[in-house]
């Protein structure tokens, strides 16, 4: 019978879950590393096709949202509920912006005939097919994580609004925040690996 909430324990549990997420993406980075070694030239060509500006913009958006999520945790601990709500809404909004950008980016690629199993890729350079295959899988999986992160943040927001999260009980918010930062972490690696190679 636990009489009080063990915040540290909840956090350890969350971190353990995050490790599994890191390794999940890690498997894809193993593929990236191996294929980059195999087709460096095609990867350079592929990287040039991606829009650095959109990529950089998305990086900034995610960093900003990461900051606001961290700030919302500071705010709840300091007891300013309104600020917490504001920060959270802004973070979710950032996630939304990120997805919209991604949508346009993918849309443009698909419009140019670059998508999995498309004629252009199948008949083109094999290395290029692999580059875009990895691009779609990694950014797709990352996008999925953004959506999950947004859902978690929204639940936290709802709980803050309902008064279930406050300065003494904020593990849910804390853990959603950790998840959101992880999504950011992965993007920090995805961005240079895909947009800035060679």
């Amino acid at each position: 019978m636990r009489s009080e909430i063990d915040r540290v324990g909840l956090k350890i549990g969350m971190w353990l879950f995050l490790y599994s997420e890191i390794i999940l993406f890690g498997g894809l980075f193993v593929l990236y590393a191996a294929y980059f070694h195999k087709h460096p030239a095609s990867f350079a060509v592929g990287g040039k096709e991606l829009n650095r500006v959109i990529g950089a913009l998305n990086t900034v958006v995610l960093l900003l949202s990461s900051f606001t999520v961290a700030a919302s945790i500071t705010a709840i601990q300091k007891g300013s509920r309104k600020l917490t709500i504001g920060f959270l809404i802004f973070s979710i909004f950032c996630g939304f912006i990120f997805l919209v950008n991604k949508y346009f980016e993918w849309g443009a690629k698909i419009h140019h005939g670059i998508y999995p199993n498309s004629e252009t890729l199948v008949n083109g350079e094999p290395g290029l097919n692999i580059f875009f295959g990895l691009y779609y899988v990694i950014t797709g999986l990352h996008g999925l994580h953004i959506i999950i992160g947004m859902v978690l943040l929204s639940i936290s927001l709802a709980l803050v609004l309902a008064g279930k999260i406050d300065g003494s009980r904020f593990s849910m918010l804390d853990n959603s925040g950790l998840y959101w930062h992880l999504v950011d972490l992965i993007w920090i690696f995805v961005f240079p690996l895909f947009y800035l190679v060679l």
Binding site: P116, N117, I130, Y136
Partner: peptide, 21 residues
């Protein structure tokens, strides 16, 4: 589902990497 080709040797993939993973 999508035949991306990450493990398909005809599309530049490497079946051995599957075995590694």
């Amino acid at each position: 589902l999508l035949s991306i080709g990450l493990f398909d040797p005809d599309k530049g993939g490497d079946p051995l990497l599957y075995q590694h993973l």
